[in-house]
Amino acid sequence: MNIHLTDQPIDVAAVLASVQDEGAGAVNTFIGTVRNQSTGRRVVRLDYEAYDAMAVHQMRRVAEQAREKWPMLCQVAIIHRKGRLEIGDVAVVVAVSTPHRADSFAACQYIIDTIKQVVPIWKKEEYEDGSVWVAAHP
């Protein structure tokens, strides 16, 4: 498993290379990028804060859960950025390899959806006229 939290730009090609596997007929990748607007407001940048040790632990846990649900999983990579990100930057990459494509789509979606629910990383959206911690308030 290639599981990392980093304050450096993510090398997507290197992440893809890390899930290459001779037993895999499918590689599925999710790339989360920084969007320029949110609920109608213009976003100028994002600041990601992480509880590093727990974030890595929980990302590893999510990968292990995926492996239990899809025992045929060949390789898994989860790389998340932290720190300041600009519009268009890559915030997260999930890549999985499996023998057949259906499992690769399902496992990749499970991993990114679960990351968003459990991994202690917080996103602050910076606008031209203020900032908001995403999802903090109802």
Partner: peptide, 26 residues
């Protein structure tokens, strides 16, 4: 200690405790 704790967990002095507001990674 890097796990979500149930409400009935009894804390100990050396536990690594953190408050986790709504997460918003990804």
């Amino acid at each position: 200690n890097s796990e979500y704790a149930p409400e009935d967990y009894c804390l100990r002095e050396n536990d690594e405790i953190a408050l986790i507001p709504p997460v918003s990674g990804g």
